[in-house]
Nucleic acid binder design. Structure first.
Length: 548
DNA sequence: ATTGATGAAC
């Protein structure tokens, strides 16, 4: 009698535990349930452990390392358990672990099944390591799994991710009975590799298209820098395609950001809200960036402040901090950096780059050194961009010799853009001797860059070295370097207007120049007021620029 | 239980 009721209770307990595990939301809850499982002395190989493994390996709020610790306690893990852990790591930050666990599995003589392979192919894709991918592919052929459509589709993605679109196409061609995923994978592959003509061709030849097909095409155009094309595909999608999702909108808002199309961007934002799309952190980040790049820093802040702090990550902070920095809102940018650390988000290399950019705008040399050293202290290696930013800070602050020495002491070769920053510094601060050294080096580095010749020629002109000035322009002509016009874009009421320097073809050209002259005069006026120690003659050098 | 997509700086 007692035995019956006990076993009855245990059955109930089992049922309840399973139910609770199904509903589990966080690692905290999971650990509590795990503790119950252990304290009741339930068998290791029971269904609870599998559930615990699944949640901690696969859930968004899971913890793959916890999962692995549980897994490693199992005396006889099932193929399902192996697959769970391999799948978990393939989605993690360390997909290489999928492969080491896979190898361990092989060593122990456990045979992988057709569920295992898509996960390890995905892991190789995420590692962007074709060599590993090829070995995995070879193993798939050896074990006779090469006609599995799931595996083939993941192989297309793997080869395309590694930049080998030819092999991706080969796998695609070999598939008997291609499905939508196969088509989307090859389409996305071409888009990823920047082959938009092919991507478009694939897209057109598809009999069935879903939101991913459209999104891949749009994103491909965005990644290829063809933002207008991306926008027009999106318009077409709205007219004749499926409903866009949050992934589509990330690409579309990115296109708006690069076009500086604020009105369109606002419409996109409205569309997102109106259509009740899931507003993910990724989407919020791209909206912050879009508003910042379109000059609407207040709107960017509004989106940013709408995200609850506990939901944020380093990317959205970087987008906001970087946006403030490029708007010259240096103080705000520094404050946000402090706030970010108070919230407990660790800055990364990009954060420091944003901070250095802020310092460059604010002329904050001391702070820049502080950030540059923090970067090293936190165990990060400064990249070429960090060095370039530092040079920019020093050059703008008239610490030209320090900047020059900084470049000489760098452990890496200076880039042309870095020397370019120093060069502009030399010109702006009238260090003509250093300008000449740097300018010559720049022409050596980039013999086809028109601006370098013109810049150096202008330097000589200021120094009244007319012969040298002329010889620069002659050298430029001799080498067939063409002066390429720079474009400016202005968006008014959703219409994009393009301008070239000295352009008089626009219908509102007269009014535009009128306004421009007014702005230039105002700027100069306030500049002279701030720089009384500098002579008017000196600062008028800007006028001589680009008259060439 | 499986495959295909998205965000930050230059």
């Amino acid at each position: 009698m007692l035995g019956v009721s006990l076993s009855c209770k245990i059955t109930n307990l089992n049922q309840n535990l399973l139910g609770l595990l199904e509903k589990c939301k966080s690692m905290l809850e999971l650990k509590q349930l795990h503790a119950v499982v252990i304290s009741f002395g339930l068998s290791q190989d029971d269904p609870f452990i599998s559930k615990i493994l699944c949640f901690s390996a696969l859930s968004n709020s899971g913890n793959i390392n916890y999962s692995y610790r549980v897994f490693s306690q199992l005396s006889r893990p099932t193929i399902f358990n192996w697959n769970t852990i391999i799948r978990g790591y393939s989605n993690s930050k360390l997909p290489i672990y999928s492969l080491s666990i896979f190898l361990k599995m092989l060593r122990l003589g456990v045979a992988p099944d057709y569920f295992t392979y898509p996960f390890i192919v995905k892991a190789s894709a995420r590692l962007l390591n074709q060599e590993i991918g090829v070995s995995v592919h070879a193993h798939i052929i050896q074990t006779g799994h090469e006609s599995d459509r799931f595996i083939q589709n993941s192989l297309i993605h793997m080869y395309a991710s590694c930049g080998n679109i030819m092999w991706a196409q080969k796998v695609f061609d070999s598939i008997q009975g291609k499905n939508l995923v196969s088509w989307n994978s090859i389409l996305d592959g071409y888009a990823k590799c920047g082959e938009m003509v092919m991507a478009h061709k694939v897209f057109e030849s598809m009999s069935e298209k879903d939101v991913r097909s459209w999104s891949s095409l749009i994103d491909g155009y965005v990644k290829a820098g063809e933002y207008r094309e991306a926008m027009s595909v999106f318009e077409k999608m709205r007219a004749v395609g499926p409903k866009a999702n949050e992934v589509t909108m990330v690409s579309v808002s990115c296109a708006c950001a690069h076009l500086g199309a604020l009105e369109k961007g606002k419409m996109i934002h409205k569309y997102i809200v109106d259509s009740g799309l899931l507003v993910t952190l990724v989407l919020q980040t791209s909206l912050v960036d879009m508003y910042a790049k379109c000059g609407a820093i207040e709107e960017a802040l509004l989106v940013f402040r709408g995200v609850s702090k506990s939901q944020t990550d380093v990317l959205i902070w970087n987008a906001m901090i970087g946006g403030l920095a490029t708007h010259g809102l240096v103080e705000e940018s520094l404050n946000l950096f402090k706030e970010m650390q108070m919230v407990g988000i660790l800055p990364d290399e990009v954060t420091y780059l944003c901070m250095l950019a802020a310092c460059a705008h604010g002329g904050l040399v001391k702070e820049a050194w502080y950030f540059f050293e923090s970067l090293n202290k936190c165990g990060m290696t400064p990249s070429i961009e960090h060095y370039a930013c530092m040079v920019d800070v020093l050059a703008r602050a008239d610490q030209l010799t320090t900047a020059y020495q900084f470049i000489c002491r760098m452990p890496i070769e200076p880039t042309a853009s870095m020397l370019g920053a120093l060069f502009s510094g030399c010109i702006n601060h009238r260090n003509l001797a250093l300008a000449e050294i740097v300018g010559k080096k720049l022409i050596e580095l980039e013999p086809n860059h028109d601006g370098r010749y013109i810049g150096l020629s202008n330097v000589y002109a200021v120094d009244k070295r007319w012969d040298d000035a002329r010889s620069m322009r002659e050298a430029m002509e001799r080498r067939g370097v063409k002066k390429s016009p720079g474009f400016s874009f202005v968006e008014i009421s959703g219409v994009l207007h393009r301008f070239i320097a000295h352009d008089k073809t626009h219908p509102d050209s007269v009014e535009t120049y009128c306004m421009l002259n007014f702005v230039v005069r105002q700027t100069k006026f306030s500049f002279y007021k701030d720089n009384k120690e500098k002579s008017l003659k000196d600062t008028s050098m800007g006028d001589e620029f680009f008259l060439f």
